[in-house]
Simulated assay, not measured.
Amino acid sequence: MSWEYRRRGKTPSSRTLAPTSPTEMGGSLWSYLMHSRSHPRGSTFKDPQHSRLSKGHPVVSLADHGATAGTLRVNLTWQAPSAAVLPERALLLPWRAKRPAPWQQAQGPVMVTVDLDLACMYELADGQKGVVQPLGGLCGNLHRPPYITLGDDNRFGAASGETLYINLDKADQFKRLLIFAYIYSGAPAFSRVHAAVTLHPPTGQRLVVELHEQDPHARSCAVALIENRDGQLTMRREARYVYGYQADLDRLYGWGLQWGRGHKAIE
């Protein structure tokens, strides 16, 4: 169940890499082991083609990252956790499916079905407002207003995730865009599914916003706000979590849309 729109001083932060030997920690093996635990290796975003937005580095110009024309692809990805790592209360939430019978379970950890949705509220230069989201079939249009469209609805956390497409050839038609995500079903918190939103400009570095804050009750997250400032699109990392859904994000950012309860069709 979710909400459906009804028509009517610090330097930019970067992930610290673990030292390669105990001598880098002053010769203390204990210090080396403790530092390695708090800064694990294998960060997803060590790739130089990614630019990770953080609290210390929240605002970028899309033009500086090659997003001046063509199509900007916005991708939400997440991982389905196993039931063993979820708290017992998560298995009792009313929107969760019943546990499978013992004979239906395969050997090994049981993977939990998690359905996250990617969406975008828009306000155009001519005053039009609305939302592009899976609920209500509001998939948008890439070549006509709102110049935003939604890819397939991914309900199982596949590697492809969910994707929005934004027509940058119509950048002058945008006043502001709020990219957000919400938990439709299956997860107790964003931090447990390792969710991230990546913006893929036609050229240049990809921009990444990780959704890993420890907020166990939040069901929605405002990911990023794109605004037209003097003809240039800028993006600000928001990562603002709310306990409710689209209507609560609307009130937080003053969009002024009307909302009603909505459900996805059962497939």
Rank of each mutant, 00 (worst) to 15 (best):
L124D: 01
G231C: 10
A158N: 08
S54P: 03
H212R: 12
R15G: 11
D230L: 15
S2D: 09
Y5F: 15
K129Q: 07
R6F: 11
P201R: 01
Y243L: 13
E162A: 03
G66K: 02
G130H: 07
W255N: 02
P145E: 06
Y32K: 11
V209A: 07
R89M: 09
C221N: 05
S185N: 14
F190K: 03
D117S: 13
N75Q: 10
Q79I: 13
T234C: 12
R155E: 08
Y243A: 13
H200E: 04
G56Y: 02
P216V: 13
C139L: 13
G256T: 07
N141I: 06
M1W: 09
P102Q: 03
F190P: 02
G262T: 08
D64F: 05
R192N: 03
L249W: 06
T23L: 15
L93I: 11
A106M: 13
T234W: 11
R6Q: 13
G157Y: 01
V114W: 02
V242E: 01
R15M: 13
L257D: 04
L168K: 01
L118H: 01
K129R: 14
G108E: 02
K170W: 02
L91I: 06
P201G: 02
G254E: 07
S28G: 08
T71A: 04
P12W: 09
H50G: 01
N154R: 08
N141L: 05
T163M: 08
T23Y: 12
L76E: 02
P100K: 07
W3K: 08
K98Y: 04
V60D: 00
L177K: 04
P48E: 07
M111R: 12
K10I: 12
L92W: 13
R237F: 05
R37F: 12
D117M: 06
L164T: 00
A18E: 07
S82Y: 06
D230C: 14
G27R: 03
D172Q: 14
E210F: 03
M25N: 03
Y182D: 14
A189N: 05
